Simulated assay, not measured.
Amino acid sequence: MRQGAMKPYYLFSPWTRIFHWVMVICTFILFFTGLYIGNPFFLGTQGMEPTFAVNNVLSMEVIRYIHFIAGYVLVISFIPRIYGFIINPGDRLLPKPWTKLYWTGIIDTKMHYMFMRSKHRPYLRNSLARSGYLAVYLMFLIEAITGFAMYYMVDPNRFLAKIFGPYTNWLVNEYMVHMIHHYVAWFIILFVIVHVYMAIRADFTEKGGEVSAMFSGIKYMEEEPDDLGDIIDTKKSKAK
């Protein structure tokens, strides 16, 4: 009943939605295969791999191959994300720290999440969420750089090795590259946990279709969002 009275706002293009779900799948594949590569759960004292690795089924070689493929797919998936960013204003909801709305939004949403306010102002995407998404994109960039740097150590004669190889020296040594790659992966998983919780929480409390928006591209709101100007020119629309 309530959602029927709410106004729909088209935000996310099919390109960004495709990217989102490809990113979700690749992130989990990369994380769990990365855990295996870092610690392959060796059993006993003879260095024997688990029984499911017999006959090269899910052996270290196969796991590494899956990890590398998922890495390439994730990097390539940013192409439709960038295309969506270019063609659709709703795909550009990133932080704008040079605006007053960004900082008032940070305070407003923090107070709501700390249970100091019953609700926050209406936003298509609040300032904390915008900052979080930008942060996770930067973490993926770090993962791509450090991942490719380690991958191309195996064959320094490859073309991409000349691009990513220097990062090993810039980041001190191979061990440091590995540790950065490892710990940033855990930060990404921490973000995923918080993101899923907050999205489901928003759906229950605000009933605006926070989760379904990544299938339909549409969010629903009772009040006009404060950041509506990020997807339409509010001055022109009021003039009409």
Rank of each mutant, 00 (worst) to 15 (best):
Phe164Gln: 10
Ser13Asp: 11
Asn126Lys: 08
Arg92Tyr: 02
Glu206Met: 05
Ile142Glu: 02
Thr168Ser: 05
Ala161Phe: 01
Arg92Asp: 03
Leu94Ser: 11
Glu222His: 15
Leu228Trp: 03
Met60Cys: 09
Asp203Trp: 08
Gly44Trp: 01
Ile25Tyr: 07
Cys26Arg: 02
Pro95Arg: 12
Gln3Phe: 00
Asp227Leu: 13
Tyr123Thr: 05
Gly4Ile: 03
Ile180Cys: 09
Met153Tyr: 01
Lys219Glu: 10
Leu94Thr: 12
Tyr197Gly: 07
Tyr197Trp: 06
Gly4Ala: 07
Phe204Glu: 07
Asn126Trp: 08
Tyr133Phe: 09
Asp230Gln: 15
Phe32Met: 12
Trp98Lys: 12
Trp98Ser: 15
Gly208Asn: 07
Thr104Gln: 14
Ile193Tyr: 01
Phe187Cys: 13
Trp15Ile: 02
Glu210Thr: 15
Met153Ala: 08
Leu128Tyr: 02
Ser131Pro: 02
Ile180Gly: 11
Met111Asp: 11
Arg81Met: 14
Leu228Gly: 12
Asn39Gln: 05
Ile18His: 02
Glu49Pro: 15
Asp108Gly: 00
Trp15Cys: 08
His112Ser: 07
Gly34Arg: 06
Leu141His: 00
Leu74Gly: 02
Ile79Met: 03
Pro95Ser: 13
Ile106Gln: 08
Gly217Glu: 07
Arg2Gln: 08
Gln46Leu: 09
Val24Tyr: 06
Val172Gly: 03
Pro89Arg: 09
Tyr220Lys: 12
Gly34Asp: 07
Lys119Met: 01
Ser127Cys: 15
Gly217Leu: 05
Arg121Thr: 12
Tyr83Thr: 13
Ile218Phe: 06
Val22Pro: 02
Phe215Val: 13
Glu206Lys: 07
His178Lys: 10
Asp233Glu: 12
Leu124Met: 10
Ala239Gly: 07
Met114His: 07
Val57Cys: 03
Thr104His: 09
Arg201Tyr: 14
Val75Met: 13
Gly217Phe: 03
Gly4Asn: 04
Trp98Gln: 14
Gly208Ile: 00
Pro225Met: 06
Tyr123Ile: 01
Glu206Trp: 00
Ser127Tyr: 09
Thr45Met: 04
Arg117Met: 04
Gly105Ala: 01
Met198Phe: 09
Val54Lys: 13
Met111His: 06
Lys100Asp: 04
Trp103Gln: 07
Phe78Leu: 11
Pro166Ile: 01
Tyr183Pro: 10
Glu223Cys: 01
Val75Arg: 01
Met153Val: 04
Leu94Arg: 11
Val154Trp: 02
Ile218Tyr: 10
Lys240Glu: 14
Val24Met: 12
Ser131Arg: 04
Gly217Lys: 08
His182Gly: 03
Phe140Asn: 14
Ala202Phe: 03
Val54Phe: 10
Leu101Ile: 05
Gly229Arg: 03
Val22Lys: 02
Met214Tyr: 12
